[in-house]
Nucleic acid binder design. Structure first.
Length: 920
RNA sequence: GCGGAUGUGGCGGAAUUGGUAGACGCGCUAGACUUAGGAUCUAGUGCCGCAAGGCGUGGGGGUUCGAGUCCCUCCAUCCGCACCA
């Protein structure tokens, strides 16, 4: 009987589903293990061969862990809110939920065919009200909490109010937006609106006016990582700056914990480094510069307080709020013009001109905190409002941008650290001795920094400061297809709905576009207000809202009363293994860590970090094929002959090319235009060229898993995707080679069947040699799975199978463990053979074989013998032979004489069990 | 500019701690079986050389009895971030 993969796979997929094999629940007898994949956005294009790569890896690991006796939680769901469905809705008028539903159905069918071990009873969809009820619920909690720097955690706003009533905000050390100081009396004097405005500065979800990336074409605000070079990443529309009222999440409050938390999780160093850079901690000092003849102070942040005596001017960002207040005539109007111009310039223009320095004197001077000398104040767009305080003390001698600026505006350059040549350029290194710097002269940079900070603090002109690059996340989107905010406005003041009102469901609208007045689509909804008649917020939440806590919801997906019950979360805790793409390094993986830490603070979850171990699977790129059309003809010339003609490369569908050889007949059929095409062949074949590109429909290089499953079966697909190479490496997809693993499975099948095709395994006891190779494979494969080296595990299976063929071994004693070992990789064929071996239970919970050390050790070791580091021959010696004896044996060996000859043996190095090296 | 990753046969890749470089697979070559084969099996396959042998892990240098692996330096490719004070 042949290996009929399609019958076998259908049979077992049905069996698993009917018996609910993968259904999981709390089992206090077993240790839990939570394996999670990043859930997909169900796009209209369906899965391509790159998507399942990570899912296959995690599925193998989940199956392995089950057989190792763990209670494995392995769920799947859909990140179903998103722009493509909304765009489609705009074009067709069809509600996005319909398209989304359809796409999900297709994804599910494709996923099912690959044979994953998901517990589908726990499925979540971010767009279903039962799910987003809890996204909204969490938002309400964020609104009702602030971050206390003393306790280093989120605390209820009600506590903050009692503090205000007791002593105002003087003793409060909290993460907040700039807020004036007030006393208890001051607090009590405020009216409701004023109180709410103050509280808003403290909330972890807060409303704030801010400069945002406004995309008029999309009618929406974009996050910084959604804008590239002044254009929207999706759609490529121009983006401009605009002041808008937006919801924010105070992610910055958690910056230190987000940074420190990285120490305790097993993520790749490179990914942690990306997060560290994103959080961007820098230590330095805040220094206040008094503005001459004014009450105002300019606050700057610097990492080099030691260079303070080298500061010769000040620069503010164009957006800086002090500018209009301090600019003095006759410069004020010029400053105003400069600000306007810089706003008009798009990000792209500003970036294109990084070489040209621009700026404008404000007519105002600051006082140097130590020398009391006047420093001119400039506005220039090389200073960014979003970093630090939006203002700097310029030290041209020791900062290259300040240096350029000083040269252009003819400002003094004062050297304060030795080591450079300020005629040539700035000297930025931290090596050198302080000069021209009064009380810090002669110190090195490190000590000078300490001394300056000490002095600043004692004179109250500054303080030691830690600054973070990370910014609060803008949380409003002016779109339809997202979670509505559970927020209403009373007298223009935002209040959150009571939890009982949740979910606040998306209303129907006539169109999925902004209104004519530029309001978000929800403003089109009739009756978009509370029962009491207060208007509801018209924004929706961004994509990361729904994906920030989905891993928690899986633990208790059906629970309608809580985000997650105590019982469930105390059992499942957090994700042990998370598998997904590295493109989420700064988005999703920062936000969900933030989200989790907040939920931890308010006692909903029990772990500080959501994802203990994380594996980034590499991207599967496309491998495009080309044919070469002779210009202005219908003639195509084979790859290696193309230079003899004037040709043009044309993409050709990779599905009609095999090993770069074009299927000419299929090519002719593919397009009426090609029906009469002529071909110039080499050696009777048409060879195509190739290139690595993104996998995309337009490049005709999309490989669909369904087609491969049809041709080879899911088990082959699973094996091949893993066999391709290390999981973390990006690589182009290439079908060539899939035959190899297919052949392996066919050979595996035949091992259990006689020539006639009947199932047949031998009952005899296995030989020493057979047990040896089996146990070595057990050791190798389990080790490889533990370190996610699935490609080498598959090699080990192939080696074992080849060896069993050599030994003509089809003994049950060997084959049974073999089937279990292979089952996480190729579950269908293994269930089938397992059943044929006489087992009634599914192999899914069969105990994973353990290796026995006694079969691993060898009595004889083949030593490679080298002379001066070059291997010359091999020699079998007993494992337990002592070093001196090995030396004697090697030197006296016949083959050695040839290499020693008349030379003197200087030294013999023996590494027991490894190698012998003779130095002559 | 800064940061990260990668570089090994015709191809995908292996070598987990400095110890036989090229496991395993593809492809290719030759042969066997078969009505046939895009099935299966056997043998071979890093490069140069008839051979003995020599050369080989992006280039150059170093440490070591011994380097794909460690150090220095240069080059190439890919991916992040980008006026970060």
């Amino acid at each position: 009987m042949d290996y009929n993969f399609s019958d076998i796979e259908k049979k077992w997929q049905q069996y698993w589903e009917e018996k609910k094999i993968y259904k999981t629940g709390i089992d206090p007898e077993k240790a839990k293990y939570y394996v999670l994949d990043m859930f997909p956005y169900p796009s209209g294009a369906g899965l391509h061969v790159g998507h399942p790569l990570g899912y296959i890896a995690s599925d193998i690991y989940a199956r392995y862990k089950r057989q190792k006796g763990f209670n494995v939680l392995h769920p799947m769901g859909y990140d179903a809110f998103g722009l493509p469905a909304e765009q489609y809705a705009i074009q067709t008028g069809q509600h996005p939920s319909i398209t989304t539903e359809k796409n999900i159905e297709r994804y599910r069918k494709q996923l099912d065919k690959i044979g994953f071990s998901f517990d589908w009873d726990r499925e979540v969809r971010t767009c279903s009200p039962e799910y987003y009820k809890w996204t909204q619920w969490t938002f309400i909690q964020l609104f009702r909490h602030y971050y206390d720097n003393k306790t280093q955690k989120a605390e209820p706003i009600s506590d903050l109010i009692s503090k205000f009533e007791r002593s105002g905000n003087l003793d409060v050390d909290a993460a907040c937006s700039p807020v004036p100081e007030f006393t208890a009396v001051g607090w009590r004097k405020m009216n409701e609106k004023e109180k709410q405005q103050v509280l808003m500065k403290y909330r972890l979800a807060y409303l704030s006016e801010s400069m945002v990336n406004w995309c008029p074409k999309l009618g929406t605000v974009l996050a910084n990582d959604e804008v590239r070079e002044g254009y929207s990443v999706r759609g490529g529309f121009p983006v401009e700056k605009k002041k808008m009222s937006q919801w924010f999440l105070r992610v910055t409050a958690y910056a230190p914990r987000l940074l420190n938390g990285l120490e305790e999780i097993e993520w790749s160093e490179s990914l942690k480094e990306i997060q560290r850079n994103w959080i961007g901690k820098s230590e330095g000092a805040t220094i206040f510069f008094k503005v001459k003849d004014s009450e105002h102070k300019i606050e700057v942040f610097t990492t080099r307080p030691d260079t303070i005596f080298g500061s010769t001017f000040m620069v503010l960002a164009p957006e800086h709020e002090l500018l209009p207040k301090i600019s003095a005539e006759p410069y004020a109007s010029k400053v105003e013009k400069y600000i306007k111009d810089s706003f008009r310039r798009t990000e792209r223009e500003r970036m294109a001109e990084t070489k040209t320095v621009t700026g404008q004197f404000t007519g105002t001077y600051c006082e140097h905190p130590f020398t009391k000398k006047p420093l001119p104040v400039f506005v220039a767009d090389y200073v960014l409002i979003s970093y630090g305080t939006g203002s700097i003390m310029a030290v041209p001698a020791h900062d290259s941008r300040d240096y350029e600026f000083a040269k252009k505006f003819d400002l003094p350059v004062k050297e304060v650290v030795t080591g450079g040549d300020i005629e040539q350029g700035s000297y930025e290194a931290r090596d050198g001795i302080m000069i021209n710097s009064e009380f810090i002269n002669g110190m090195d940079v490190r000590n000078a920094i300490k001394a300056v900070i000490k002095k600043l603090e004692s004179t109250q002109m500054g303080k030691s400061t830690v600054n973070y690059r990370i910014r609060d996340a803008i949380f409003s989107r002016q779109r339809y297809w997202g979670e509505p905010f559970p927020v209403y406005y009373k007298d223009g003041i935002p209040y959150v709905l009571d939890e009982k009102e949740l979910p606040l469901e998306l209303p129907r609208v006539d169109k999925y576009l902004p209104t004519e007045t530029g309001e978000p689509p929800l403003a089109r909804a009739k009756n978009w207000k509370t029962k009491e008649g207060y208007p509801l917020d018209c924004n929706t939440m961004p994509g990361f809202a729904g994906s920030s806590a989905y891993y928690i919801r899986y633990m208790d997906a059906q629970n309608n009363n809580e985000l997650v019950s105590k019982k469930e979360v105390e059992y499942w805790k957090n994700v042990d293994l998370y598998v997904g793409g590295a493109e989420h390094a700064t988005g999703h993986l920062v936000y969900s860590r933030f989200w989790n830490k907040f939920l931890y603070d308010i006692g909903v979850v029990v772990e500080n970090e959501p994802f203990k171990k994380l594996i980034n699977q590499g991207m599967i790129q496309g491998r495009s094929n080309f044919v070469y059309r002779v210009k202005n003809t219908n003639k195509f010339v084979s790859y290696n002959l193309r230079n003899k003609y004037d040709t043009m490369p044309v993409h050709v569908d990779v599905n009609i090319v095999e090993n770069d050889i074009l299927d000419i007949e299929e090519f002719k059929k593919s397009n009426p235009e090609h029906e009469n095409a002529e071909f110039i062949l080499e050696e009777g074949k048409y060879v195509c060229g190739w290139e690595v590109e993104k996998m995309s429909k337009s490049y005709l290089n999309v490989v669909n898993p369904d087609d491969l499953i049809q041709k080879y079966g899911a088990d082959t697909l699973r094996l091949y995707e893993m066999f391709l190479g290390p999981i973390e490496q990006s690589k182009p997809w290439d079908d060539k080679g899939i035959e190899g693993v297919f052949r392996f499975l066919k050979r595996f099948w035949r091992l259990f069947h006689e020539n006639k095709g009947d199932f047949c395994v031998a009952p005899e006891t296995a030989s020493e040699e057979e047990l040896k190779i089996l146990h070595k494979t057990i050791k190798k494969v389990s080790g490889d799975i533990e370190r996610f080296a699935f490609n080498t595990a598959i090699s080990a299976f192939m080696t074992l199978l080849n060896k069993l063929y050599d030994l003509k071994c089809n003994k049950k004693e060997i084959l049974e463990p073999f089937v279990i070992l292979l089952s996480p990789f190729a579950p269908h064929i293994c269930e089938e053979t397992w059943q044929k071996l006489g087992h009634e239970e599914s192999i899914v919970f069969e105990q994973y074989p353990e290796y026995d050390e006694k079969y691993i050790v060898e009595e004889l070791i083949t030593y490679p013998v080298s002379f001066n580091g070059k291997t010359r021959f091999k020699m079998k010696l007993p494992t337990d032979m002592d070093i001196e004896e090995i030396k004697r044996n090697v030197i006296e060996a016949e083959e050695s004489q040839k290499w020693i000859k008349d030379k003197k043996v200087k030294k013999v190095i023996v590494v027991p069990g490894k190698i012998v090296n003779v130095v002559v």
